[in-house]
Design a protein around this nucleic acid. Structure first.
Length: 320
DNA sequence: ATAATTTGACCCCC
DNA sequence: GGGGGTCAAATTAT
């Protein structure tokens, strides 16, 4: 049976199955993927021991690709089961510090109960938010983020960490970021960028060619902020943000005036360039007034479950 | 001294 | 009612 026939069979069967059966199949698939991932990692370790640096690079590349595929599949399943959107990971985890891997310390401080419940700011829960999601091996990017919250998420082992732009108070920058570690074994992060940086500063950490080397000689904070050597946001000019190093290199990259028309494409370029294998779809829906009044970002829908089995959907992309 | 993080409380909205 | 996003005092780091 050829691939097309198999695919058609899968589609036909899937359309008949009840949801519970689909979940059961998901579980079986998940177990299979996890076994495969584990075996591949072991094989990778074996290869690394037996071959020298001039060995079969292509085999190593192939293994890496297998790892990415497994990790991506597991991430997809996790996300679809939990009702989240999903994307694909770019590269295996590189062992960078995690912002969410710390068990919160138990503090003994006792906060005196406020005598009078003062009304805080009116919170607006986002509905159709201006957000970009990605799955990444690293939580770091070129921006400076300040953590302002962490929440345990229902049915999730990893907490979700909340970050806002460090320059929020100075420049009123509304950019936010949420980071949550995926629950598979890939050690990747589900990162959601909300809103856009409006602060008039830009970092150029890509001048740091080897971030790992950089970390050996510089203190790197626990937060996922500060440094990356991966990509630049072409919309904004931003200062270097390593708060410890205080080195600042500024450069005007592009004006803010010509960005709207091609913004979705640019974000697409950024993340596709960064992740390599992210699947994103950009929709132009209403912006949320609470997060952006300028329509800076295009909304993104990660492919939903229907896309997996629909014509021209995810499977077709993956296997084409 | 100042900045950043932690973490329980608060609050909105599904 | 409760999940999750945010606040802000306390704590920690620089």
């Amino acid at each position: 049976m050829g691939y097309r026939e198999s695919l058609m069979a899968i589609r036909g069967i899937s359309s008949i199955f009840m949801i519970s059966q689909m979940e059961q199949n998901n579980n079986i698939l998940m177990e299979t993927l996890i076994r495969g991932l584990d075996s591949t990692k072991k094989l990778q370790n074996l290869l690394r021991r037996k071959v020298n640096l001039d060995g079969p690079i292509s085999a190593e590349d192939l293994l890496n690709e297998i790892l990415r595929s497994f990790s991506g599949g597991i991430s997809m399943l996790n996300s679809s089961v939990s009702g989240e959107t999903y994307g694909f990971p770019a590269t295996p985890h590189m062992g960078l510090a995690s912002p969410v891997d710390r068990i919160p310390e138990v503090h003994t401080r006792k906060k005196p109960a406020p005598a009078v419940k003062e009304r805080r700011g009116c919170y607006k829960r986002r509905r159709t938010i201006d957000s970009i999601e990605k799955i990444s091996a690293t939580t770091e990017d070129e921006y400076a983020w300040r953590k302002y919250g962490q929440k345990e998420i229902l049915n999730s082992k990893s907490p979700r960490c909340y970050f806002r732009c460090t320059h929020k108070l100075v420049h009123g920058c509304k950019a936010q970021k949420q980071v949550q570690m995926l629950e598979d074994e890939s050690n990747m992060y589900h990162i959601t960028y909300i809103g856009r940086h409006t602060c008039p500063s830009f970092s150029h950490h890509e001048i740091v060619l080897d971030f790992k080397d950089f970390k050996k000689h510089h203190h790197v904070p626990k937060s996922p902020s500060t440094i990356t050597n991966i990509h630049i946001d072409p919309f904004v000019k931003q200062e270097a943000v390593d708060s410890k190093d205080q080195s600042t290199i500024s450069e005007n990259v592009s004006s803010a005036n010509d960005e709207n028309s091609s913004q979705a494409l640019r974000w697409n370029e950024i993340f596709m360039g960064d992740l390599g294998s992210s699947f994103m779809r950009f929709d132009h829906e209403d912006s949320c007034a609470s997060t952006s009044s300028h329509g800076y970002l295009s909304n993104i829908d990660f492919l939903n479950n229907d896309d997996i089995l629909s014509d021209g959907g995810l499977l077709d992309h993956v296997f084409s």
